[in-house]
Design a protein around this nucleic acid. Sequence first.
DNA 1: GAGTGGTCTAGACCACTCG
DNA 2: GAGTGGTCTAGACCACTCG
Lengths: 238, 238
Amino acid sequence: MLKYEEIATILKERIQKEIYPPDSFLPKQTELVSEFGVSRMTIKKAINILALEGLVYSQRGSGTKVLNHPFVDKNLSYLSEYNGLSNDFAHSESTLTSEAISFNVEFPDQTVQERLMLSDTQPVYNILRLRLVDGDPFVLEHTYMPVDLVPGLSTAHIESSIYNYLKTELNLKIAGAYRTISADKSCLTDQKHLNCSTDDPVLAVQQVIYLKDGRPLEYSTSRSRFDVRSYSYLDIQL
Amino acid sequence: MLKYEEIATILKERIQKEIYPPDSFLPKQTELVSEFGVSRMTIKKAINILALEGLVYSQRGSGTKVLNHPFVDKNLSYLSEYNGLSNDFAHSESTLTSEAISFNVEFPDQTVQERLMLSDTQPVYNILRLRLVDGDPFVLEHTYMPVDLVPGLSTAHIESSIYNYLKTELNLKIAGAYRTISADKSCLTDQKHLNCSTDDPVLAVQQVIYLKDGRPLEYSTSRSRFDVRSYSYLDIQL
DNA sequence: GAGTGGTCTAGACCACTCG
DNA sequence: GAGTGGTCTAGACCACTCG
């Protein structure tokens, strides 16, 4: 483990245990330098991690203040969309199950070609999955993935967790995602699978997930019942 | 301007002009050190900015690759929610206008007290505004702000841009926002002001905006017509 | 003016990738 | 084994805040 990560973890613990209580100041950087026996650049890097998570605010000339936003302990879960939903639910009391509605291989249409940066001769998986929480319909996911990036995908993976397969078997590294969130009227397919009424809206999320080397891994559209899902995120101004 | 910012800007320009084309590699860091006459740490900091924006991907042992995500040039606008909508539209061909529907001062209820970390004796503004684009209803914003943080707010500010007042007159510095996005059925108020039909959904955004010193500045709920607004963001895995 | 954090340097060492 | 980027150091200087 890297020094600055270790120090960041220790500082976070101290904030959580209120050894550094809200609205107090962290020890000055030179003091932390002596305590941890590292250079100031390393201390700065550690503090910077906390700042990016909204835990502290550093100001030239005055010091580094511990903030007390009401959402600090929620930090863990709201980012992890591409660990797959399976992971979000791994430590929860609810159980997530998946039901493959359709699973095909086909040549991509123009939208999919653009989003996944493919030519029309490179086949893609076309997957429609319903995810259920404790047996109740939660989200309908329509996913395209290039076959050459994800060889050997099977219904078994789809009914459990695709992302476990990607990470553990294929060792693919995900860089991030570009997401668009919108509201929409429910269509017949939504109503059928999500078990919602004709005038219920849905929350729609379109995303393209990229690998670290820049190749798009997934283009998907997911639709959730409006009353069971929302998206939260912390947006830090740089 | 700081050295690493200057260098980051130059590198971005070169990527945009395809002096460094997609899928190519940036010059090695030692080469950039000679070119710019700075230390390698400074080059690293500059490249790191590009990496956080998803423009390049650095890998130990191989180099720094220029990525070609289709959304790179959208980088400018999708983050700027707390510059106020007024700013989003400053360089657009459409015009944004605001209409104050109600503007009061009151004692906060319990939700508002929690979100804004206030006691029940600290008054807040309660503002309901309709924002229109080219005269068409766009979003209905319901905003609470502590009076002591924003003295002297008037209808004139509300009908133009609150955030200009906050930034230029009061010199308040915004750190970031915690946002929750969801879909909802439209209520009577939505239908009246957004001019939408009874079965039209709305896109709802709840947010708390924080100042750099950690104090909450605004708690607001905004509701938009489902067919005119969506939220996009780039989510980089760290 | 005293004290803080931010930037920057010039170098060392190391982990990793690739042929 | 050669070459890359990541980490870390020990120090210098500077911009800023605050009394």
